[in-house]
Write a protein that binds this DNA or RNA. Structure first.
Length: 718
DNA sequence: TTGTAACACGTTTTT
DNA sequence: CGTGTTACAA
C-alpha cells in the first residue's frame, strides 16, 4: 500500500485517500489528474473499503476509460471485470441492455451514430413531405439533440413561434420513428436511461446501494443531462468525486455546462474542494504565460498552476508574411528540432480550425517532413464500412429501415428512386417495415432483377451466415452483396478494399476478446454487441501508428495530450479568437480557455506564430495579431524573425484588385503608407466612411498595429 | 440510373 | 481556393 501512494504530493494524497465523502477536485493541466483518479480507485480496493462492484467511474472518451483500466490493471492484480468503468454512453448502453424491457426497448436495439441519425431525419422529413430548404435536416438534428442533452422530450419543449412548433413536431415524429424501428441515438442512450432511473425506484435503489464510490473525469465537460444521470446513481451512502478544470472547458458549443461544477459544489461537495495546482509538465515560462492569459477570464473558480521546474526557454513568437511562409517556417524549425534529437512524435502543430491544415501539409510535404493529421473520418464511419455493417444489421434485424435504404441499391442493382418511393408508400400504408413489405411482395416471386432480386439476396445471405462465426459472416456478406467486387473494380478503391478486409480483422479481434464474449450474453448476442461496439467506439482516425511523424491537430483535439515542443499557429484576430465566437455569449472566454489549453500542451518549448495575410475562402485576408498575444507578459516572449520588425517593404503586396466594401476610401488593404511619426506601414483594415474613416496600420517594430482616423492622421502612399 | 457540371459554403467534436 | 452536394442531361 505504501508503494501505491509513493510520490504523491500532499494535495494528490488528500484526494486519493479522501474518506468516504464527496469532493470536487480542481485539477489543473498537467497536475496528475488521471493518476489521482486511478490511484484513488486502487487505494479504495486495496484498503478493502469497497469491492470492484462498488465502483462507478465515468469518462467522456473511450481512450480515457481504457487508459484508466490499463493503469489500474498495472497497479493491482485484480480483474477489472464487474467494475463499471466506461464512458457515459457506454455505461448508459450497458444499463439499457440490462433493463431493456423496463426501458421499453427491444433487446437488440441498434445505436445510431450522428451520420445514421442524420439520414434517419432526412428519411423522416421526406416521409412528412417537409421542404428541406425551410427546415434543414442538420438544424433539425441539432434541435433534437440539444433538447435531449438538456433532458427535454418533445412535449416538454416550449415553442414560441410556428417554426419552432414545427421543429417540436419533427422531434416527436423522430422519436416515434426510432421507437418503431428499435433504434437509439447517442443522446437517447443517456436520456432513456436517465428516465428509466427516475421512473423506477427499484432499479435506482439497486444501483444506489451498489455504487458506494462514484468518480467522474473531465467534469467540466458534462452537460445538464449527464449531471442529472449521475445524480440518480448517488444514494445516501455514495461518495462522489468529480474531477475537472473549469479553465479547460472548451465544449460549451456542444452543451457542456460549466455551471455543473458550481452545482456539484452545492449538491455534494459543499466546501470540500481539493486543488491540484502543481504542474509536472511544463517549464516556468510556459506556465506563467498560461496563468497570465487565463487570469483575464472573469468567471473562474480560481486556481494558479506552479512548477518546481525552472523558467526554461522563452516563448518564441514568429510573425510570418503569410500563411505559406508560416508553414515553411514550421517545417524548417521542426526539422531543426528533429536534428537535435527530438522525436517528431513529440512535436505538435496546433491550429484553431481544420482548414488551416492544408497549407501546413503542403509545406511539410514539400520539405519532406513526415506528418500525421488527426481528425477526419474514423474507421467505423467510413462509407464502405458503414455499408458492410448495414448489410450485417439488415440480416440480423430486417426491420431496420435505415439499414435497408442504405444498401438496397448499393452496389447498384437497378432499384431507383421511383421503385423505392413506391415501397416506402406501401410500407407506410400497412405501417410495416420496408423489409416486411418487400418480402411480402417478392418472397414467392422468382428471383429476378430489382427488388425481387434484393429480397432473395438478403434471404440467401441470411441462410448462408446462419451458424458461422462473425468474421466468416462478414466475409460472406462482402462477397455475396457485391460490395467487395464493387470497390475492387473502382479505380481508387484500394483503400476501401483494405478497410473492408480490416473490418473482417476487427471482427476477429472482437470475438477473441473475453470481455466482449461475456458481455454479449446480456447484450442480445455477439452480433448486436459488435454493432454497438462499432457505433460507440468509432475507432482510430487513421492507421499507421508507430511511424515517427509530426503531429498536426486542432487545439480541441490536443486536449489531454502533451508534447516536448508545440507550434501554435494562426494567432490572428478573427481566427483565434475566431470571428464567430465574438458574437456568442461568453464566446471570448471560451476562446481564451482554448488558448490556455493550447499553451499548456507544451513541456519545454512553445512557438506561437501569426501571419500578416492568409488565404481564407479563396481570398487574401489581412489579420492583426491576436489579442491573446498581448495578454501574455512581453518578457516571456522572444520574437524570432530577425528583430521581429522586418522591413515593411519586404511585406509589400499589391493591393487587392477588388476591395469593394471599402471603395469609398482611397486606402486599400495591403497598401503601403507613410506616417509622419510612425514611419512606413501596411494597411490591414479599413472601417467607416467619409471623415469617419479609420484605417488600421501595422507599422511593425516599436509602433506595432495602430488605428488611425483619417480626419486627423496625415497619411501618404509609400 | 448514372455521370458531369454548376453551385453553395466555409469553427471547434465525442459518443 | 477547394470541397461536398445537388440539379440536370445522356
Amino acid at each position: 500500500m505504501p508503494q501505491l501512494l509513493d510520490g504523491l504530493n500532499p494535495e494528490q494524497l488528500a484526494a486519493v485517500t479522501l474518506p468516504h465523502q464527496s469532493a470536487l477536485i480542481l485539477a489543473g493541466a498537467g497536475s496528475g489528474k488521471t493518476r489521482v483518479l486511478t490511484t484513488r480507485i486502487a487505494w479504495l480496493l486495496q484498503t478493502a473499503q469497497t469491492s470492484p462492484l462498488g465502483i462507478l467511474a465515468v469518462t467522456f472518451t473511450n481512450k480515457a476509460a481504457k487508459e484508466m483500466q490499463t493503469r489500474l490493471g498495472a497497479m493491482l492484480p485484480i480483474n477489472t471485470r464487474g467494475m463499471w468503468i466506461g464512458t457515459f454512453h457506454g455505461l448508459a448502453n450497458r444499463l439499457l441492455r440490462t433493463h431493456h424491457h423496463e426501458a421499453g426497448l427491444p433487446q437488440v436495439f441498434q445505436i445510431l451514430d450522428s451520420a445514421d441519425q442524420l439520414s434517419a431525419i432526412k428519411r423522416l422529413l421526406k416521409s412528412m413531405n417537409v421542404d428541406t430548404d425551410k427546415f434543414e435536416p442538420k438544424k433539425v438534428q441539432n434541435f433534437i439533440n440539444n433538447n435531449k442533452d438538456a433532458g427535454l422530450r418533445a412535449q416538454h419543449v416550449e415553442s414560441y413561434d410556428p417554426y419552432m412548433r414545427r421543429l417540436v413536431e419533427f422531434y416527436a415524429a423522430y422519436d416515434e420513428q426510432c421507437n418503431r424501428e428499435g433504434v437509439v441515438d447517442f443522446a437517447e442512450l443517456l436520456l432513456r436511461s436517465e428516465e428509466l432511473l427516475a421512473r423506477s425506484d427499484a432499479i435506482r435503489r439497486h444501483y444506489q446501494q451498489r455504487f458506494r464510490y462514484i468518480l467522474v473525469d473531465e467534469f467540466q465537460d458534462t452537460n445538464r443531462l449527464q449531471y442529472r444521470w449521475l445524480k440518480h446513481f448517488a444514494g445516501m451512502d455514495s461518495a462522489l468525486m468529480a474531477v475537472g478544470d473549469d479553465d479547460q472547458s472548451i465544449y460549451a458549443f456542444r452543451g457542456a455546462h460549466t455551471g455543473n461544477m458550481n452545482e456539484f459544489q452545492r449538491d455534494y461537495a459543499h466546501d470540500n474542494i481539493i486543488k491540484l495546482e502543481q504542474n509536472y509538465r511544463s517549464h516556468g515560462n510556459i506556465l506563467d504565460a498560461a496563468n497570465a492569459l487565463i487570469s483575464k477570464n472573469p468567471t473562474r473558480l480560481g486556481k494558479n498552476l506552479w512548477t518546481s521546474a525552472d523558467a526554461g526557454e522563452p516563448i518564441r513568437v514568429y510573425l510570418a508574411y503569410n500563411d505559406q511562409e508560416e508553414a515553411r517556417f514550421i517545417a524548417e524549425e521542426a526539422q531543426a528540432l528533429h536534428r537535435e534529437g527530438i522525436a517528431l512524435n513529440d512535436i505538435a502543430v496546433l491550429y484553431r480550425s481544420n482548414a488551416q491544415s492544408r497549407v501546413l501539409e503542403h509545406a511539410l510535404f514539400s520539405a519532406g517532413v513526415p506528418y500525421k493529421v488527426y481528425g477526419g473520418l474514423r474507421f467505423f464511419e467510413r462509407q464502405e464500412v458503414k455499408h458492410a455493417l448495414a448489410y450485417l444489421r439488415l440480416l440480423a434485424f430486417p426491420d431496420d429501415d435505415g439499414a435497408f435504404t442504405r444498401v438496397v441499391n448499393f452496389p447498384t442493382r437497378g432499384i431507383g428512386a421511383r421503385t423505392l418511393e413506391q415501397l416506402i408508400d406501401a410500407a407506410q400504408q400497412s405501417s410495416s417495415s420496408l423489409w416486411k413489405t418487400a418480402y411480402a411482395k417478392y418472397a414467392d416471386a422468382p428471383a429476378g432483377k430489382g427488388l425481387a432480386g434484393f429480397v432473395h439476396l438478403i434471404r440467401a445471405m441470411q441462410e448462408a451466415t446462419l451458424g458461422v462465426t462473425l468474421p466468416e459472416a462478414i466475409e460472406h456478406i462482402l462477397q455475396a452483396s457485391g460490395l467487395m467486387a464493387h470497390y475492387v473494380a473502382e479505380k481508387d478503391g484500394q483503400d476501401r478494399v483494405d478497410n473492408l478486409n480490416e473490418l473482417i480483422n476487427a471482427a476477429t479481434v472482437f470475438i477473441n476478446d473475453a470481455d466482449a464474449i461475456a458481455n454479449a450474453e446480456d447484450n442480445g448476442g455477439l452480433m448486436a454487441s459488435f454493432l454497438a461496439h462499432a457505433a460507440l467506439e468509432a475507432g482510430t482516425h487513421q492507421a499507421g501508428e508507430g511511424h515517427d511523424a509530426l503531429q498536426l491537430m486542432t487545439v480541441h483535439a490536443a486536449k489531454g495530450l502533451e508534447f516536448h515542443a508545440v507550434f501554435l499557429t494562426g494567432l490572428e484576430e478573427g481566427l483565434f479568437p475566431s470571428e464567430q465566437s465574438m458574437s456568442e455569449r461568453d464566446g471570448l472566454e471560451e476562446e481564451r480557455r482554448l488558448m490556455y489549453v493550447a499553451i499548456t500542451r507544451a513541456r519545454r518549448r512553445l512557438y506561437i506564430s501569426h501571419a500578416q495575410s492568409r488565404m481564407l475562402h479563396g481570398q487574401t485576408r489581412y489579420g492583426i495579431a491576436s489579442r491573446f498575444l498581448d495578454e501574455i507578459p512581453v518578457e516571456l516572449l522572444k520574437p524570432i524573425n530577425k528583430g521581429y520588425a522586418p522591413a515593411v517593404e519586404q511585406y509589400a503586396t499589391p493591393a487587392p484588385r477588388t476591395a469593394k466594401q471599402h471603395s469609398s476610401s482611397p486606402w486599400r488593404m495591403g497598401m503601403n503608407v507613410r506616417h509622419a511619426k510612425f514611419g512606413v506601414g501596411v494597411v490591414i483594415n479599413v472601417e467607416g466612411q467619409g471623415t469617419d474613416t479609420r484605417v488600421q496600420i501595422n507599422f511593425g517594430g516599436a509602433h506595432g498595429v495602430k488605428w488611425l482616423s483619417l480626419e486627423y492622421a496625415k497619411l501618404e502612399a509609400a
